[in-house]
Each structure stands twice: as C-alpha cells, then as structure tokens.
Design a protein around this nucleic acid. Structure first.
Length: 871
DNA sequence: GCAAGGTC
C-alpha cells in the first residue's frame, strides 16, 4: 500500500518579507524557494500539520489585492452628477493588474487542501484575508478544504510557532469594516473633489491646480496647516515687562528669574521694580538639590523616524521612506515600516551592538557598552507588527551615499541610545527674596551622560551656580526692567504636523507621508525652509470656505467619526450595509448643503483669483466668432474664448505659441505650436478645436493620454494634434507631414516644422527622433512619394556656405532612405535599429510591411510600403 | 483628473 498522500497547505502573508520569515521559522531554514507565476516568491518545505505529514507552500500578496472604484459609466466627469455617486454601485478591481496576484494565488491554491492566512494582524490584514480567500477559490466552511487564520503578535520564530499551534478563523466583521471604510472614503472623496474642482476650475483662470481635491484625511491635514497660518495672521503682539535683577557672587554675575515671569502692565511692573530697587538686598530663602533623570528612548518606529528625518535631517517623509526602504532592501536596517517601539523578548541586542564596534565615530562607545553591560531598552508599545527599526549591518558613508548615510547614522544612534544608561543630572534651585518678591536661579550638573553621549542633541545643558548659604544676604547690582513683545508661533513644521496627524488618528504610518505629499502636490501648501508648511492662497481659501459652510468638513473629527462608525461593524454590533448607508446618508446631506452654500466659499475665491475672462493673454483667433481667445498658462493650460464662453484644453507641460497665423481648414481656428521643454523636446502644430474634438473617427491613440486609460477615461490636455490628423489635403496633417514608418514602434515619423536649424523628424507615437541634414535653410515635405519605398520625398534647401552639393547649389529633393546623399546626412536618436539597419545593410526597398500606422481607420490611401524594418 | 489603505 502506498502511504497516504501528504496534505498540501498554502500559506499567504501580506508581503514577501513576512512570507520569508514565516517559512524560515516553520522550516527551520530547510526550504526551497521558487519564483511564483507572478511577482511573489513561493517557499516550500515539508513538515507536519495536525499530526499528519504535510507539504507547505508559503507565498504572499503585496498589500491589498483589490481596490474599489466606480463603474465606467460614472467615470466621465461631464456626464455624472457627483451627487449620484453616493448611490452608485462600486466595483473591486485588482489594484495592480500587472502583478497578477489573483492568478498566482489561484494557481498555487489549486492542489492545496488547506489555506492558512498570515496577513498582518490588523483590520486591513483581516480584509486582505478575504481577498485572498476569494482569489484562491476556497469556500469558508468546507470540511475537506479549510481556511485558517494565524494570529501572531510579532514576526519572531516564537510567535510564529505559537500562532501555528493556535489557528483560528478569519474575522469577517473586521474585514467588512474595511469594506465600509473603502466605500465611504471613495464616495465622499470623489463626490466632493469632482464638484469643487469643476466649480472653481471653470470659473477662475489663475487657479494653479489641476485637481482641487477633498478627502477625510487630506483635508483635515490641510486644516492643521491653515489653522496655524490663521493663528499667525490674527496674532496681536502684546508688550510685556519682566524684572531682571543681577547679583555678583563669588565672581559670577547672575541674572535672577522672577517668579511672576512677566507682567502685561507697565505701571505694575515699574511698581515692582521700585520695590525691588528700594530694598536693594537679596536674601537667600531656600536652597534645594534634586537628582533628575532623562530617560533613554524606546525603540524607533516609522512615525518617529519620519519626524526626526524632517526636523533634524531635512528629509521629507516621502524621501525619508525611500531612503529607509533602500537601506532595508540592501540589508543595512531592519524593516522600516512599523508602529512598534517595543522589542520582542528574543531580540539579540548583543550582536546588533557588536556590529557597530568598528564605527569610527561611536565604535569605542559601543565597545564600552558591551564591556560594561548595556541596558535593556525602555518598554515601548508593541503593535504586533515588526520590531523597532534597527541597524542590521555596519556601513560607512561610501557604501550608502550622503543622504542614506545620514538616515542610517540616526538609526544607529537611536538604537545605541535605547540600550544606553539614562542621563542623570542634579538640579540645583536657589530661591531669593527682594523687597518681598520671589526670584530664583536654576543650575544643572550632569552626573551620567548616558544615552546623550550618543545623541548629543538631547544633552542636558550644564549650568553652574555659585555656592549660596540659606539666609545669606547679597547686594543687588542692578535691576533691569526688560521690555519684550509676545510673538506669533511659527508656521507648522512637518514634524509637528506628523505628530498632530498621529494624535488625531489621521492616516497611518504608511499613509501619513502620502497625505502630506498630496496637499503639497495639489498646491494647497508649500514646504519652505526648515520644512515649515505654509498654506497657499488656494489652501487658505478652501479651509476658510469649509469653516464658513460646514466646519466639520475640515476638522479631524471627520476621520474619527468614520472610524468610530466602522468600528461598530468590526465589533459585529451593526450590519455593514446599514452603517455604510447611514454614514453616506449623512455625508450626502452635507454634500447637498455644501453645493447649496458654495457661493460662500466662492466669495473667498473671488477675492484671491481672477475670473477666466480676466485671465491669460490674447493669443489666437476662435474659428467660431473670429475673436481672439486667451491663453491661460496655469495648469491645466487651456484656451478660453470669452465670446463663446468655451474652454479648449491644450497639451500640458510645454509652451504654446501662435503658429504663423495659419488656420485649420476644417474649422477656421488659428493653429498653435506646442513645444515640450529641452533640446530634444518635440514641437508640433495643433488646432485648439480639433485637439479637443477630433474630427475623424478611429484615432485611438491621443497625445497626452495616460498609458493606463484602460477604462477609456481621458485626462485634461489629451487630444489630437495635427500629427495624428488624417486630413488628406491640409498641409499640417499626418498625411502631408508624415515621412515614413517609425523604426521603433507602429507610429509614423513626422517632420518637425519648427525645428530649424536642427531639422528633425519625430515619431507621433513614441520618443524616437531622427536628425535630418543639419543647418539646412529649409526642409519641407513634398507631395511626392519615393518610387522605391514610398517614403515622402523631402525638399532640402541647404545653406549656401555649407551645402554638401558639389556644384554649390542649395536645393535638393530626395528620399531619406533611398537617396545616398540624404541618407548619409541622417542620424538616429533614441533607439538603435534605424541606424544599425541602415548602416549595415545599406539602402534597400521596403518589404511591404509597415506603413502609415497611426492614421485613421478607413483611410483613402493605398497602403504605402514604407518601413525600415526587414531590410 | 477624484479617496484612503495596503506594499513596492
């Protein structure tokens, strides 16, 4: 009899690093690893499961497998009323279709009898559990194929083994709470964002933002910055006065601090000054000495790393995370995304310290710690995720580069700090009395530097006091009446903002950097020197507007309200759909009210921004009314016809000029020339009307369309320039300006009409560039085709002085592929095949493949046999 | 073009 087949068990973690840890712990390191069908690895080993032999496969997802969005019919901003979004259905689609996680899980699960979910032990992890279950095709309650949930409190061997022995079921309520949050965030965020973007962008010309977004996290984040701004702006400085008596004792001159600190009434201050001056003698009334201690830090978590990176190292959160991520993947530090500040009991401090003994800066200190005995870190909080961020390998600046080195140094210093002694110092306080008023002096003397020797910026300042005796009387040398003025706080620092967000539950350690980045990118705030966040006119108008209409919208409570509601779902107290419905109902009411009251916010915008009609400068004529339209250069750049009240979007991120007052034969609009920046940026003509409403069917690749537009939605600024236009006779169309097929893609090489004197062709699909004879006076396309390869024949007017023509003449026509002279003057940029094929094989005829790809379907032309391929 | 959450 053959032995019974061992069970196959699939285990899935939230990220590759945890899959590896789990597999290593459970296999004792005896495993084999293969690349799965997609992007995540699979670790395999044999073991036992519930007393029987088992084959284990451990793999992972990469965060959420799915994310929610609206169906296609709700994607068009111009067609969907944002109010309808509250009732719209939502879809789950794979977050990262290219990673093929769904396929991967489904394939790996096929031959497995059991599924064990090792997702992170938080709500999001619980939600991903059910995403994984869906992908694997396991069904909850089948007796033969069971789904288990491993609950681990840290990613250590001990906890992993313990979790394996105590498998439970995934918690559907917690997962459904996340579903609820996703739906609420999506509907509320998108509805408000679309409404206010459309409202304000259609009205003002100098609004410098493509999207005026709203979100229950980003908006309160902005709120914090604006709140501080308003505090500064409404601040009224007040004068105050303080008494500063001076004494000289044992050779020290000493300024005494007044117990009343400061007074805001000059007369009263002067009265006290007289009192003190009249007395003129200080009496020592009390001397005390107390030992104080400053605790060493607890372990470093992500949020604290981000705060230090911003305030001390000058790195923004996004940058800091990038650097940390790189240090992690290169093995210099441990996993940088963690909430925990407590170390697992099994943490090996000794060997982590041991790696640092050769460091030129702190090596000796670390060696001494090892020799004298280091301390255990202060107990922090254990969030059950990863251990605090610690160094894993010794490094030097050359290995890491300047920025990463700074961050690495901090991680090391912090870690060494956590196992150093506390800082101990003595605090001396001497109290004095002069004319019945109480004054004091405070001295500090450090006994044990402890962790402050490795983190010197936290050191306690030494301040020596001369010896005093109780009852001693000393003459006052002078009494200064100090006049000061209260000053406003500074702009909110990024580090303060991170603290506020953390305290108010806005975002998570991973999303805090994203929210801050968002409000910067949307032009609501700017990061200024010292990483201070200064709100822009747009950011201020928005927040003040919410404050006028419905302050809830920008208060941090809006997030806690949602969290508190979905917690009811997580605890199984209220049904998921009832909570979603209830919360959305409330937000819908808020939305309706907001729309009704938008004029109140608009009043603030009117004071800051100029209406479209007053914006921009006259540039080109409208084909409908024949009046000048204005060019509005702020993003999204566009043309505005004040007479027709029409907006025509333009290609973004380049410069726009009038094109020789030429007009489009289809609609009479004056043509424009768009140029991308840089010496290799292409320039092309476009008609503002055709660009926005392509006149021919079947132009499926528009310029500026995002590559991921699988849903068919297009961004502002995508459109049809003349180089895509199949107009048969217009001198600017693809038909007139196209020369031959692109050697790199299915596009067509088109003459850049304003590239003199560095004449060139560019591809209308990819970034392929071909340089034509340089320095020519003029190069233009003709209506003739090459009889050999059907490329468009070019006419070149060489410069008199530099003409390559032997008889000194300047005019020449020919095919750039088949004409020996022209071809020898052509040079390829971006891409190799053009040059190589031409060079190695000489000129030949087209093979019959290729041609004017990229022109519209149903063209009237014979398929021109023009290709560089297959020579 | 839009949210926030995960991870790379």
């Amino acid at each position: 009899m053959a032995p019974p087949k061992p069970h196959k068990i699939l285990m899935v973690a939230e990220k590759p690093s945890i899959a590896l840890s789990i597999a290593s712990a459970l296999s004792g390191g005896h495993m084999s690893t293969r690349r799965g069908g997609s992007s995540t690895e699979v670790h395999e080993f044999n073991g036992t499961f519930r007393g029987s032999n088992a084959q284990y496969k451990v793999t992972s997802v990469i965060g959420h497998v799915f994310s929610v969005d609206f169906p296609a019919k709700y994607q068009d901003w111009t067609v969907t009323d944002p109010l309808d979004l509250f009732q719209a259905p939502i879809l789950k689609a794979e977050s990262n279709p290219k990673a093929h996680i769904r396929r991967h899980l489904s394939q790996e699960a096929r031959d497995c009898g059991h599924l064990v979910l090792w997702l992170d032990c938080d709500r999001e992890g619980e939600n991903i559990c059910f995403e994984v279950v869906e992908c694997t095709g396991f069904h909850g309650n089948e007796a033969r194929r069971r789904v288990y949930r491993a609950r681990f409190s840290s990613v250590t061997e001990k906890d992993i083994l313990k979790a394996m022995d105590n498998l439970v079921e995934p918690n559907e309520d917690e997962a459904r709470a996340v579903d609820a949050r996703q739906e609420i965030d999506l509907k509320v965020g998108v509805a408000f964002t679309r409404f206010q973007t459309s409202y304000f962008q259609g009205k003002y010309g100098n609004l410098d933002s493509r999207v005026i977004s709203y979100g229950p996290c980003q908006t309160p984040t902005l709120g914090f910055c604006v709140q501080r701004y308003l505090q500064i702006n409404t601040f009224k400085p007040e004068k105050f006065w303080a008494l500063h008596p001076y004494i000289t004792h044992n050779g020290y001159e000493l300024q005494l601090e007044w117990e009343r600190n400061k007074l805001f009434d000059l007369d009263v201050a002067v009265m006290f000054q007289n009192l003190v001056m009249e007395d003129g003698i200080v009496e020592v009334t009390d001397i005390s000495e107390k030992q104080e201690s400053k605790s060493r830090p607890s372990g470093l978590n992500t949020v604290n790393l981000l705060k230090v990176a911003s305030s001390a190292l000058g790195f923004g959160p996004q940058m800091a995370m990038q650097l940390a991520e790189r240090l992690y993947t290169q093995g210099f530090i441990s996993y940088p995304r963690t909430e925990s500040t407590a170390y697992p009991s099994s943490f090996d401090f000794k060997s982590t310290l041991g790696m640092q003994t050769n460091n030129p800066t702190w090596g000796d200190y670390v060696q001494k710690l090892l020799d004298d005995g280091f301390h255990r870190p202060r107990s922090g909080t254990d969030a059950g995720d990863h251990p605090p961020i610690t160094p894993m390998r010794a490094a030097n600046e050359d290995m890491l580069g300047n920025d990463a080195w700074k961050l690495y140094q901090y991680v090391c210093q912090h870690f060494i700090g956590t196992v150093s002694p506390d800082c101990k110092y003595v605090r001396n306080k001497v109290e004095f009395s002069i004319g019945g008023e109480i004054f004091r002096c405070i001295g500090q003397h450090v006994i044990v530097k402890g962790f402050t020797s490795i983190m010197p910026w936290l050191a306690v300042n030494e301040k020596n006091l001369p010896q005093f005796k109780k009852g001693e009387k000393i003459e006052v040398s002078k009494v200064e009446l100090y006049e000061g003025e209260t000053s406003p706080p500074d702009y909110l620092s990024e580090s303060e903002l991170i603290s506020l967000m953390e305290k108010n539950g806005i975002g998570t350690d991973a999303s805090i950097p994203v929210h801050i980045n968002n409000i910067c990118e949307r032009n609501f705030v700017q990061v200024q020197a010292g990483r201070k966040l200064v709100p822009t006119a747009l950011g201020i108008s928005l927040i003040r507007g919410y404050q006028c209409i419905d302050p809830d919208l920008c208060l941090p409570d809006i997030r806690s309200f949602i969290e508190q509601q979905i917690t009811l779902v997580a605890k199984g107290q209220v049904d998921h759909s009832r909570v979603v419905e209830h919360v959305l109902q409330q937000f819908k009411q808020k939305f309706i009210y907001f729309v009704k009251q938008i004029e109140n916010m608009d009043a603030l915008f009117e004071a800051q921004f100029s209406p479209l009609a007053d914006s921009g400068r006259a540039l080109s004529k409208c084909g409908k009314c024949l009046r000048y339209m204005k060019y509005i250069s702020t993003q999204p750049s566009r043309m505005y016809c004040g007479t027709c009240e029409e907006v025509y979007y333009l290609p973004q991120k380049g410069t726009i000029k009038l094109y020789k007052e030429l007009t489009c034969p289809l609609d009479n609009f004056e043509l424009l020339i768009f140029s991308l920046a840089g010496p290799e940026g292409k320039s092309f003509p476009l008609c503002p009307y055709c660009y926005n409403s392509p006149p021919f069917e079947g132009i499926d690749t528009l310029f500026g369309a995002t590559k991921t537009s699988s849903t068919g939605k297009l961004g502002k600024g995508a459109g049809m320039p003349c180089f895509l236009c199949p107009h048969p006779t217009c001198p600017h169309s693809l038909i007139a300006q196209g020369v031959c097929a692109c050697p790199e893609c299915s596009g067509t090489l088109v003459l850049d009409p304003v590239s003199a004197p560095k004449w060139r062709l560019y591809c209308n699909m990819c970034n392929c560039l071909v340089y034509l004879p340089q320095g020519a006076h003029k190069i233009s396309t003709t209506r003739d085709r090459c009889p050999e390869c059907e490329s468009t024949i070019l006419e070149v007017d060489f410069n008199k002085k530099t003409t390559p023509l032997l008889d000194g003449s300047t005019l020449y026509t020919g095919c750039i592929l088949c004409d020996e002279l022209l071809h020898s003057l052509v040079e390829m940029k971006h891409g190799k095949s053009f040059f190589k094929r031409m060079g190695s094989r000489g000129r030949g005829r087209g093979s019959g493949r290729g041609g004017f790809r990229g022109r519209g379907r149903g063209g009237k032309w014979d398929d021109p046999k023009m290709s560089f391929r297959d020579f």
